[in-house]
Amino acid sequence: MINDDVIPRRGFSPSEFETRVERAQRIMQRHGLDAIFVTSPPNVRYFTGFDSQFWESPTRPWFVVVPLSGRPVAVIPEIGAPEMALTWMEDIRTWPAPVPEDDGVSLLKATLEGLPRRFGRIGAELGREMSLRMPVIDLFRLRDSLGSEIVDGSPAIWAMRMVKTDAEIAHIHHICTIASAAYAALPGQISIGESEREAVRKLRIDIARRGADATPFMPAISGPGGVPQIVCGPHDRILETGDILFIDTGSTFDGYFCDFDRNYAIGGICAEAARVHEALWLATEAGIAAAVPGATTDAVWQAMSRIIEDAGAIGNNVGRLGHGLGLQLTEPPSHRPGDGTVIVENMVLTIEPGMEYAPGKMIVHEENIAITADGPRLLTRRAPREMPVIR
């Protein structure tokens, strides 16, 4: 039973991080890795709990080494040591960054070479939906001087992060609850004649007032009977009778994202848009129902795709019908043909059917769910079956 009134505590206990690292080490064993080292803010935060607005500065690289056994090691600029010491981390090694001629590379190398060598392979963020937050030339220097091989660690890292802990799911559910309430209140706050930009401004403020930490992602677009795309905007376009207003949000609580949209009819909705909206509402139901332990992401896609195709879709420029969610707005897996990911308990997924039903006219639905042993559980408040009307 989900309790929308329970606000999770910020941060996580040391035992939470111990659980994450123990699971990570079992996965590293299966992948034949002596260690992984991570550099990107979400992965650093996942293993340490460290967060900072200083991530906006690209000057200094940061490293966290997760060995095959034992506790992680932070290899970071001196400027970050006081805050890192407030986390569960004990082994914190620093250098007086920035030092462009050797910005932590030799210290990272010494840390990696000090670990027991069993497989001779170190995993790094080299692959799918990963990015390195260090100069590539420094990675080459490390690779060429290290006794072990540096390999793509992203399959192992995503195996670790795709399955959430209960505490992570509670964080995601909380931000979903906040955004759901703000979406429901929006029709009472805006009216015909206001702009897309003004609608987004009011929604952002409401989401912040309800307890969100940030809203890094809030595209919005409007158009007569549908929209041409769902990733850009808002613009200064004025909302007119007959428009559909699409707003998506990736807001955060303590680092964890929600990611779902809502559609609003301006003044009223035409019969064709209402028909498509109904088909997508039903496709969302089918996608949610299909997301059970043991099913594949392909099967979830197929459950939605059948309904969309029967409704007369002429396209869908999104390219998939949902994805993973957590410390990043979008994470693996993807609901698309050929992805093949087996859905397991404690994954958090978006269900996102969309269809273009006429040139330049598209409608998209999206909900967020957690996978339980008994099946999918909504984290968002389900969108109304009939599109809300703004007057």
Rank of each mutant, 00 (worst) to 15 (best):
F140P: 01
M134P: 00
R30G: 05
C232S: 13
Y46K: 03
L132V: 14
E18W: 06
R26H: 08
V38C: 01
G70D: 12
F54Y: 11
F119E: 10
P61Q: 03
R210Y: 07
V200P: 05
V163W: 00
T59G: 06
M362R: 05
H365L: 14
D248V: 04
I363G: 00
I178E: 08
F54Q: 12
G294D: 10
S52I: 03
E149T: 14
V151C: 07
G354P: 02
G312Y: 02
E278W: 01
R275G: 04
E18H: 10
E366S: 14
W281Q: 02
A74K: 01
D248K: 09
F17G: 01
M355E: 07
A182W: 02
P67V: 05
G223A: 07
L115E: 04
N3V: 13
S106R: 04
G375P: 04
I247H: 03
E356T: 15
P155V: 07
R20P: 03
R45E: 11
T94W: 02
I363H: 01
A358F: 00
D236I: 06
F140V: 12
I266Q: 01
P228N: 11
D152V: 10
I192Q: 05
S13L: 12
A156V: 07
K109I: 03
R128W: 09
N317W: 09
T215R: 04
V65S: 03
P96K: 05
E278I: 00
I369M: 13
R141P: 02
P216M: 09
T94L: 01
R60I: 13
I390N: 00
G80D: 15
P224Y: 07
G338A: 13
R209L: 14
T296P: 10
T59L: 15
R118C: 09
D259S: 13
V105D: 01
K109P: 01
A373S: 15
I244N: 00
P155H: 09
E309S: 12
A299D: 14
R128V: 11
S40P: 02
G250H: 08
T215C: 06
M28Y: 12
